[in-house]
């Protein structure tokens, strides 16, 4: 895949970080404002995808990145399962039980394990979408060789 012009590259460099931060905001405030793990994870994936689309696959080594994002995705879903099954050991023996203290409603650190679940689902969704688009790009590169 070819990259785009230098204007597009510079604008993408400036904007990508801000979009990434906005995704983190959406994820961490998922239990207070609309949004959550799925929406925020997709925004983070978009901030990485526009970098790949603007710079093309010549300047970035795609295969290494695909391996990394694939491992990240698997680790995130494993951690999600671990946090969920930790409730079987701590407190009452119920799967997906909210075992951490709830705190005051409306604070950033409240609602027990829900923010942790949000963060893990966000990492999982971002890594999965990024892996899918990298797989498409690598396939196209290997076919056109």
């Amino acid at each position: 895949m070819k990259g785009m012009s230098s204007i597009v590259k510079k604008t993408t460099q400036l904007l990508s970080g801000m979009i990434f931060l906005y995704g983190i905001y959406i994820i961490t405030h998922g239990h207070l404002t609309p949004g959550g793990g799925f929406a925020g994870g997709t925004i983070i994936a978009a901030s990485l995808i526009i970098l790949v689309l603007a710079f093309g696959s010549d300047e970035l080594t795609m295969v290494k990145r695909k391996e990394g994002s694939s491992v990240t995705e698997s680790l995130a879903i494993l951690a999600f399962l671990l946090f969920a099954s930790l409730a079987l050991i701590i407190g009452t023996n119920i799967f997906f039980h909210n075992y951490l203290p709830e705190g005051i409603i409306g604070n950033l650190i409240s609602a027990g394990v829900i923010p942790l679940y949000n963060i893990l689902v966000g990492i999982e969704v971002a890594a999965a979408l990024f892996t899918i688009i990298l797989a498409f790009i690598i396939y196209k590169e290997e076919i056109s060789k």
């Binding site: 239990h31 207070l32 959550g36 909210n98 409603i105 409306g106 609602a111 829900i114 949000n118």
Partner: peptide, 10 residues
């Protein structure tokens, strides 16, 4: 019950 201000996430 959940302690989450956003009911959908809760």
């Amino acid at each position: 019950k959940t302690g989450s201000a956003n009911l959908v996430t809760g």
